[in-house]
Amino acid sequence: MARSLTKRLVSGVVPAVPFLWLVVLFLVPFLIVLKISLSDPVVAQPPYTPVFDWSDIGGFFGKLDLENFEMLVEDGIYLDATLSSVRIAGISTLLLLIVGFPIAYAMARAPVRHRPLLIALIILPFWTSFLIRIYAWVAILKPEGLLNQALMGIGLIHDPIIILNTEAAVYIGIVYAYLPFMVLPLYASLERMDNTLIEAALDLGCPPWRAFWAITVPLAMPGVIAGSLLCFIPAVGEFVIPDLLGGSETLMIGRQLWSEFFSNRDWPLASAVAILLLIILVVPIVIYRDVEARRLETQR
């Protein structure tokens, strides 16, 4: 009797502990953001009207309004930042596909004994600090930086090209930092592809480019979708890359949230920006979760 009770307690604890942890430290904080985005800023520490004043529940709901969201719509900068974030993330994802596909394809065609090494080489940069890897590009892209020195040294250009503090630098940074996240899912689906399909198509007189479009691309599609979502979603909210490489001209929503919070100390507005960012990303995040859950199920 006592034994079965212990057993039930033990088996109940396994899902309960991580579940509760995530409810308290992931779900509840989220609801708090939603509430604060609806409250008014005050000059105080903390700089917003308290959310949980239990003695005055009625008054609390009375104080909630959509003022912050009205401000987001009226002040064009937030809409511009949102649109430019989605555009920058979209273009970066496309560039990642173009850069990542040939690499993943070559890895999948490499001799089996070399593949673990190739995978390790793709993952290794991911283990070194993200911040440091972005910082490395500042020295390369500066007007008097290493890239311009090299190009001028071989006489290809005479005046330094301005890359740092432009949108181009942000694309380079995102492609560089996110490349493993694109290459690995692509490789996973290309590796499973049956090469004899291509050979059969070629034997039957199909031109190589058509065999590529008709066979390789559709079979790689799960990898394309997973990789694109894995890059697009965090890229929309990216802060470090536009901040260090993009200069003051590059508007991105993650950066806007950061400056509302740290420079303007307007916590309710920062929360409203967070909700806006989340609304943009909720559909891709749900699709990503389904794709990942299905992938794990089929691995069985």
């Binding site: 965090p234 929309v236 909210g237």
Partner: peptide, 23 residues
């Protein structure tokens, strides 16, 4: 549960950071 496990991995860090701070 699966939603709460997968969401933080792709969620922009600014949102996770801000929400935990407010909590």
């Amino acid at each position: 549960f699966t939603g709460m496990v997968y969401a933080p991995m792709v969620m922009p860090e600014v949102i996770t950071g801000l929400s935990l701070l407010l909590f």
